[in-house]
Amino acid sequence: MKPNKPAKQWQGNLMFLWITATSALCIGLLINQFRDKPVALVYQSKEQRLMQAVQNIKNNQPVAEDDDGIQLPEILTLEQMRVVVKKEQALVLDARPEIFYRSGHIPTAVSLPREDFEISYAKLKEQLEQNKNQPIVIYCSSESCEDSQMVKSALGQLGYSNVALFKGGWAEWSKGELNEDIL
């Protein structure tokens, strides 16, 4: 006896689901092999990934030298941040993914994304390691993002002692700039 039409359609749907899902998984794994930094098959949390990067940096790092600089409060307000940026009193770091940094960032800020911490740190190594007491301000997207806090603790582990957060992040800064333009 031939299966009726709805049963055939169901069979077709399930077969399609099985074949497409399997092919997608294979293609996904294949694409991963061609990435600059392939994703490991077992998941590591953001904190674990960052700590791993810190450990890798620590393993090939010379001892830091001391130098005095301006002491920053732990958390900066928008007004304080404006002064810091205007007078270039601190090294400003953007902890968001680089694509967001490219589409807009606080003036004088350089990119040190949480996700690619190890690679970006290597790029900024000279600037950062010339003085581990230099004032540094980190920000990310907004108050709800955690990247700036995570990068701050990573830098703390690497021996940076004068690191502040601009909690409002890019959202507060850009809103502030917009308000100033309107006024």
Partner: peptide, 10 residues
């Protein structure tokens, strides 16, 4: 991670 790699392609 396996799902994060496969699901978007799917």
């Amino acid at each position: 991670n396996v799902i994060a790699l496969g699901l978007p392609v799917f």
